[in-house]
Write a protein that binds this DNA or RNA. Structure first.
Lengths: 335, 335
DNA sequence: TTGTACGCGTTATCAT
DNA sequence: ATGATAACGCGTACAA
């Protein structure tokens, strides 16, 4: 009833369990002739290794860290929630995840967090800075696998990146901005910080498509809101004073300030933002925001853990395993 | 190094392993006093059950069936591909899935497929018909758990539904249709069959939002394309002869015919379709289609298996476990 | 009501 | 180079 086991393979190949194990996990020390015999037996019996038994036997515990900005609102709050939600399931699968909160935008703090890390692999969401890159290189030297989360750190030598294609995110925002504004009027773009790779990439993609296909719109220079509600609000109000705004593309956080500012504008600009948080969800519902481009951070966490497991097992993860889909939400498909 | 085990709990609680097991899986037959002692011990030691060991020990093999329409194009092809792709991973987790192909729209064939089923649970994608409902009831009587896939069968008494909210899907399509057409012009809607619940629900949702907010558009009576490319093409061409089309909402399959028809139209109508297939993907890229509303069928398959496992284990699955997200694709975020 | 002992399929440690 | 055998943590007959 149950599938074939190593015992069946051993019997067919006329060898012992230990030899089958050596071939299966290619540990070497087996004559070529026997290797072939075992492989043939595997094929013949249709053996597939039982992961549960394997994990049980070697009783390995995976220790993973998530080094992510602290914060109790917006996207990072969702990230922390997703992490918490996965904890239970992960514990049962013998993976221990430790969350190391850092100060957002504080490179020094982030480097410090990365310094004394004791684990098999780490997922890090951080700024793009030379110090960070150095520290990641040091981690890798000490045998810890590293992946970048949400914002890539391509020149750090990280083993993988888990997150969306942020250029694509920006391009998508532009496509809808062009259509919703009927290719007319002035557009305000607000990033958090252009030093954050995800933000600069989104801006890049947005500009590309607006130039390619929606030349009827005028782009203002990009504002930098530092992911801060007050600053975002100020930027919008200042820009709206100079000319009417047909559209706003908010690249980073600080959406509560955006909502406040838009409440004072007439006519209301077409507004496209990122990340489906309680704030943006409510703003969609009331019509303050027109579109939300979301990265499913829960899927991201799951993918990250899976990749970290693969990396520590030295099995190369699937090429697109880290690509998180971009979900587009309008007022009608919020869930 | 490894976490606490049942032995630790047993030792702390001063009972045997069997008693701990009885409490953990509440099988009854344990005095209240001892139950408390064990629970306290669990809390004290921080015990979490090792899933691998549990699955290994009880060596249960789950046998699930997918009764789905056959087909080598469009959405059902994606479904079959998703199923095939999951097979490997599922085998390792001790679940055997058997795919039972049926003739699309052929109720008699679908009933026959459901008749002689030997498994723990079945996921069925079928038409809404009394015979189907009866057969599902019979399955349930014989102890097989049943869930409806993609299109719900609410009056069948199925244990669960895995699929998107199709009313929401239709509403979403309308929201974008209204915006993309700037709330002007004539809209053609094409369903496959109004007897298919998913199609009628989408139509309902679409009509609701168009009436609520986009009254500037005129809706033609819904055509029925039977998910057939030729018929879909004919419907579009006939409608376009009578008046220029500002928009087309294609609810079901047959998108290759839609592409052909649109190629002859000038100006090109705003076109919104369902399911990201090779055809619709290409049409998005070339600008023939403007929006694709997709249900992630791979996520659906994964969710279905998980729910079937829960159902056969008699552990009630999470309330929203079967809700598949609707993903919106424009030419810029195809992946 | 409670406890004992064995088996699940794989890995790892010995010994040969 | 190969084999025998004892864990790993949990579930479950069976015994008491």
């Amino acid at each position: 009833m149950s599938g074939p086991t190593v015992r069946d393979v051993a019997q067919v190949a006329q060898v012992s369990l230990a030899t089958v194990d050596r071939v299966l996990n290619n540990r070497g020390g087996v004559s070529a002739k026997v290797v072939d015999r075992v492989k043939a037996a595997v094929a013949q019996t249709g053996y597939v290794r039982n992961l549960a038994a394997a994990n049980l036997s070697r009783r390995r515990i995976y220790r993973f860290c998530f080094v992510v900005p602290s914060g109790d609102t917006g996207f990072v709050a969702l990230l922390h929630a997703a992490l918490a939600q996965e904890q239970q399931r992960l514990m049962e699968e013998q993976v221990l995840v430790q969350i190391v909160p850092t100060k957002a935008f504080d490179v020094e703090d982030q480097v410090a967090a990365l310094r004394d890390l004791d684990c098999d692999a780490v997922a890090v969401m951080a700024n793009e800075a030379p110090e960070i890159n150095e520290q990641i290189a040091a981690l890798k030297t000490s045998g810890i696998r590293v992946l970048s989360l949400v914002a890539d750190l391509p020149s750090s030598g990280r083993d993988a990146y888990v997150g969306p294609d942020n250029v694509m995110a920006g391009r998508t925002a532009a496509e809808f901005m062009g259509r919703f504004t009927a290719n007319r009027g002035t557009i305000l773009m607000i990033a958090g910080s252009l030093a954050a790779r995800d933000h600069s990439e989104r801006l890049l993609g947005f500009r590309m498509v607006m130039q390619e296909r929606y030349g009827g719109c005028t782009l203002l220079p990009a504002g930098q809101g530092a992911d801060d509600a007050e600053r975002v609000e100020r930027i919008v109000l200042d820009a709206a004073k100079a000319q009417p705004l047909a559209g706003i593309y908010a690249i980073g956080a600080g959406n509560r300030g955006l909502v406040r500012a838009i409440g004072t504008l007439d006519p209301k600009p077409v507004t496209i933002v990122h990340e489906l948080t309680p704030t943006s969800r409510e703003a969609l519902r009331t019509g303050t925001f027109d579109l939300v481009i979301d990265q499913d951070i829960r899927a991201g966490v799951i993918a990250a853990v899976r990749i970290m497991r693969d990396l520590t097992e030295a099995t190369t993860p699937p090429a697109d395993a880290g690509r998180i889909k971009l979900n587009i939400y309008s007022r009608e498909n919020i869930q």
